[in-house]
Amino acid sequence: MRAGSKQSGVNNGHHQLIGVDFHDFIQKEQNSTNFELAEEYGISLRSVKDLKKKLARN
């Protein structure tokens, strides 16, 4: 059985999003590319994509 995005996050064991200012992220996501956001916050491209997906749901 394939692992979903929620399960892969749990199995990772580390959360890279600790220390990310989400208000600042929301403002910068409109004008920056995924790569620029990942580089600025020190997180992976996958984390940026997952965070954007989660923010779009709300």
Results as ranks from 00 to 15, higher is better:
residue 9 G to H: 06
residue 44 S to P: 03
residue 56 A to N: 15
residue 38 A to Y: 02
residue 39 E to K: 06
residue 19 G to P: 07
residue 22 F to A: 12
residue 40 E to K: 07
residue 35 F to M: 05
residue 30 Q to L: 14
residue 3 A to D: 06
residue 8 S to H: 03
residue 43 I to P: 00
residue 2 R to Q: 12
residue 40 E to P: 01
residue 46 R to C: 01
residue 31 N to T: 15
residue 17 L to P: 00
residue 52 K to T: 08
residue 9 G to C: 06
residue 33 T to E: 07
residue 46 R to T: 10
residue 2 R to S: 13
residue 37 L to C: 09
residue 13 G to C: 08
residue 34 N to W: 03
residue 39 E to N: 11
residue 26 I to W: 11
residue 26 I to E: 15
residue 43 I to C: 01
residue 56 A to G: 14
residue 35 F to E: 07
residue 41 Y to D: 03
residue 48 V to E: 01
residue 21 D to I: 09
residue 5 S to I: 10
residue 14 H to A: 10
residue 9 G to M: 02
residue 36 E to I: 11
residue 29 E to T: 08
residue 51 L to M: 12
residue 39 E to P: 02
residue 57 R to P: 10
residue 58 N to D: 14
residue 13 G to L: 03
residue 45 L to T: 03
residue 42 G to S: 04
residue 39 E to L: 02
residue 48 V to T: 00
residue 30 Q to V: 14
residue 6 K to G: 05
residue 27 Q to M: 14
residue 9 G to E: 02
residue 47 S to K: 02
residue 23 H to P: 11
residue 14 H to F: 08
residue 52 K to E: 03
residue 17 L to R: 02
residue 27 Q to T: 14
residue 35 F to L: 11
residue 12 N to E: 02
residue 5 S to T: 09
residue 8 S to I: 03
residue 56 A to T: 15
residue 39 E to W: 11
residue 23 H to I: 08
residue 23 H to V: 15
residue 50 D to V: 08
residue 20 V to L: 08
residue 15 H to I: 03
residue 49 K to S: 04
residue 39 E to G: 06
residue 33 T to A: 05
residue 28 K to E: 12
residue 50 D to W: 00
residue 53 K to D: 15
residue 11 N to K: 10
residue 7 Q to N: 06
residue 21 D to A: 13
residue 47 S to F: 07
residue 58 N to E: 15
residue 50 D to N: 13
residue 42 G to H: 02
residue 44 S to W: 07
residue 21 D to Y: 11
residue 6 K to W: 02
residue 52 K to H: 10
residue 15 H to M: 04
residue 23 H to F: 15
residue 36 E to L: 10
residue 54 K to G: 12
residue 16 Q to P: 00
residue 13 G to H: 08
residue 47 S to D: 13
residue 10 V to H: 01
residue 52 K to V: 02
residue 19 G to D: 09
residue 47 S to M: 07
residue 52 K to P: 01
residue 22 F to D: 10
residue 21 D to V: 10
